[in-house]
Design a binder for these strands. Structure first.
Lengths: 143, 143
DNA sequence: GATTAAAAAGACCTAATTTGTCCTGTTTAT
DNA sequence: ATAAACAGGACAAATTAGGTCTTTTTAATC
């Protein structure tokens, strides 16, 4: 029940890009240095994000990454799903028939509600939102 | 980002007990058989739940388990926390100072919001609610 | 008191997943 | 050509989840 490091790194990387001049091409090595994320690992993550169209990669000398589309059109949900596949909070929401065969599953509707609320937030939050939060004064999360 | 089997088993076990005559003492072996949960594993889980007061255990011959309090006063949140410790959706909500030292963490407030909504559901749902859902017609989760 | 049934407790094991590294391509600007 | 940069696969290490086993404690019953 925790957000993975992969997801966290991905979001930090995207936020970093969102705060660069648009269309600027940035090196993985630069991001990894600034954000203290293992370079090879971040490279792997970025691969997946660009396959999903969330990043645009430019190969060869002077290559690098930039956002695949404007930061306000990349949602957290897309990021999560690009990395971990469709969101499924519990086994029985993932594998059809996992629990329906046997008896009625009392947990099923709750998992659904939980997941729904979760996705609501993820879907309603863009990389731009995240990038802006960082600027807006030094408000701390919860102290 | 998934509910663990431990949590699922715990809830299924509790729901099972909630559907027994109150104060009836039930064997782990019975629950594990009915619910198809590995017995030794369920026993472990029940240990933790009874330390947390969510179950009452009776040792020795004729022993077993019953709910530690009425099913409508055991929330899913309590169950989750009894098993996995305080809910912390992301590292930086768990370990104080994990992200605050460095720069302002743009993800922090979002993790908080996500977690808040999550806990809202968990806190508002009791074992009784779950048990009742099971009775109430054969409505399927989502098909 | 001995026997037996049951949970408590903790050590232990295994498998899966996450996190990360490394090496060998491939692409492309210079 | 060459060097810079991403692409992709194989592999390694660390962590966590899931599960088993053994011993100890407790209580009822013979």
């Amino acid at each position: 029940m925790q957000i993975t490091r992969t997801e966290e790194y991905a979001l930090r990387g995207l936020v970093f890009l969102a705060r660069q001049p648009p269309e600027k091409v940035t090196l993985v090595s630069e991001i990894s240095k600034e954000q203290k994320i293992p370079e090879a690992f971040l490279a792997k993550i970025f691969q997946r994000l660009s396959k999903a169209g969330l990043l645009r990669s430019i190969r060869g000398a002077n290559g690098g990454f930039s956002l695949g589309r404007p930061a306000n059109r990349i949602t957290m949900k897309e990021v999560m799903e690009a990395l971990e596949g469709p969101i499924g909070l519990s086994r029985c929401l993932v594998r059809e028939g996992e629990c329906e065969e046997e008896a009625v599953c009392p947990l099923h509707p709750i998992w659904e509600e939980l997941q729904h609320r979760f996705v609501e937030v993820l879907d309603g939050t863009t990389v731009e939102d995240l990038a802006k939060r960082m600027v807006r004064d030094g408000r701390r999360g919860r102290g």
